[in-house]
Amino acid sequence: MVTSSHPQIQPILSSKDANIYYGNFLAVRDVTIDIPKNSITAFIGPSGCGKSTVLRCFNRLNDLIKTFKMRGRMNYHGQDLYSPEIDPVAVRRQIGMVFQKPNPFPKSIYDNIAFGPRLVNYKGDMDELVERSLRGSALWDEVKDKLNESGLALSGGQQQRLCIARAIAMQPDVILMDEPCSALDPISTLKVEDLLQELKEKYTIVIVTHNMQQASRASDYTAFFNVEQTDRGRTGHIVEYDRTEVIFQNPQQQATQSYVSGRFG
């Protein structure tokens, strides 16, 4: 197994020898990965290999699943995210999440964006923050005249950008995205991909994608996950992690080569 850790760039998230279980089932093993700051890291691999599972560990969203267990280390700026003194709610405020299916609240566009800041009693100018977040997700021009309409009345692509704006409004450090484009049409997908390039100026992005072109177009680093049958079920692991062009043009592992050239998966 090859896992490069890119020491020249300071990692913002890093995981070391993490084994992730659901009950007794070992879902992902030996996760060792460093996510560099202000970059886009893509997780690719066949379904069921644990991409979402690993992603959700980074902001402790898996805590909601009763059977979930993590052994090993997950660090954020060098701090162990799973140490008992860490408040998972505070972690999620720093490390935002955008889900596969756009999930705006059944509230107005404005209230969707203001939701997070209100949770922390944001004292600044809310109108300004809403506008800045919507501009940040390239949605402002499309919705500026209907901020009081329901977020659910937008198209799928707009809803997903609304969810991105909602995450940005919390002014997080990292944004995790779990297949954010899988429910979108190709044009909306391109819009979100363009947006990613702008967002990485300010944020660190980790994105799970099923779409190989998307990973190669939009990301700086790519981790290829695979899944193998073991005595404890189908366990996923990271086969190879490197700069995106290396993964796509000159992968070190045969499995990566086969996957990126479309021979399986």
Binding site: L64, R92, R93, M97, F99, G116, L119
Partner: peptide, 15 residues
């Protein structure tokens, strides 16, 4: 109430 709505809120750091 769809589970997604709860996830969205928790993902934004709601208690």
């Amino acid at each position: 109430v769809p589970q997604e709505a709860r996830q969205a809120a928790v993902g934004l750091g709601a208690t």
